[in-house]
């Protein structure tokens, strides 16, 4: 009797979860299905989640009719240079803040915590006004400058938080064995802090990949667009019917991020929570 009630309860629970999971995925499933469907009657009410007539025409249209590969290239250049520069600046800074107890350390940490709460978008106009006379508006360099600035505080604080959780004794032992500071950091600390380094790098990468507001405000002309700015420009308006193509483009843009996210997911929680900051 008790067993049967429990079993029915579990079946209901699983049913509930299946409904919830489906409901959560509806916007994505709908876009996915529309992007693969050949017979999109835009105003048709006979919509189904499984395409009735399968086609890749919408994906073809995205790649052939729009400079998506160029946008992809632009995004890749911006993302890689931002990640490299960010880590290059953040790792020594985090090491210094975590390991050296110098005068002014607390002040810098407090200042960084305050700056971390500052939304970059608030100084967007000032940055525009400053970059404009330098000729950096509408250039990739200008965007890289913005992106590394936006992620600088996050990178340093996040890594510092994780470095704090790595015991310094191991490095001290290596020091006694005659390893110099660079060797200690490169061969001992960084391998131990790998999850945080990966997560910090991935967060910068994903930030650049997903950033659209600077990319559309600072860049003019579609040849300079990133994927995000390009996708933004592809949006269907209330009246136009390019929604299936837009849906296909959305899927193309999302897949790399999804892959990276689920590959690094097991590091995500530990690499983010130790620093106490979320990107």
């Amino acid at each position: 009797m008790w067993k049967t009630i429990e079993r029915i309860g579990l079946i209901l629970l699983n049913a509930l979860f299946i409904v919830i999971c489906f409901a959560v995925l509806v916007p994505i499933l709908y876009a996915f299905s529309v992007s693969l469907n050949a017979s999109n009657s835009i105003l048709g009410s006979d919509f189904s989640f499984i395409p009735k007539q399968f086609t890749l025409a919408n994906y073809r249209a995205v790649i052939m009719d729009h400079p998506v590969l160029l946008w992809f290239g632009n995004t890749l250049i911006l993302a890689v240079s931002s990640v490299v520069i960010s880590l290059f600046a953040a790792i020594p800074a985090a090491y210094s803040l975590s390991r050296f107890h110098f005068k002014g350390r607390i002040k810098i940490l407090n200042a960084m915590t305050l700056l971390y709460s500052f939304p970059a978008i608030l100084s967007m106009f000032a940055i525009y006004k400053l970059l404009s006379p330098m000729g950096l508006i509408n250039t990739k360099l200008g965007l890289v400058v913005v992106y590394i600035g936006t992620m600088a505080v996050f990178g340093a604080l996040n890594l510092k938080g994780y470095f704090d959780s790595v015991p310094a004794e191991i490095e001290e032992a290596a020091n006694i064995d005659g390893a110099n500071a660079w060797q200690t950091v490169a061969q001992i600390l960084l391998p131990l802090a790998k999850p945080a380094v990966i997560v910090t790098g991935v967060m910068v990468l994903i930030y650049v990949w997903n950033e659209y507001i600077y990319a559309i405000t600072f860049m003019t002309g579609s040849s300079n667009y990133t994927l995000a700015a390009g996708l933004y420009s592809l949006q269907a308006t209330e009246m136009s019917g390019s929604w299936p193509v837009f849906a296909a483009a959305s899927i193309i843009v999302s897949v790399p991020v999804l892959v990276i996210f689920f590959l690094t997911q097991k590091h995500m929680t530990s690499g983010l929570t130790a620093g106490g900051v979320k990107g």
């Binding site: 509806v26 916007p27 994903i206 995000a228 933004y232 949006q235 929604w243 837009f246 849906a247 999302s254």
Partner: peptide
């Protein structure tokens, strides 16, 4: 995991569009 702006645009164009939104 989805890029945030993509999700928002999918909601806007796919769910809320007054002509062909779901």
């Amino acid at each position: 995991a989805m890029p945030g702006y993509v999700s928002i645009l999918l909601w806007k164009n796919g769910m809320f569009n007054s002509q062909f939104g779901l």
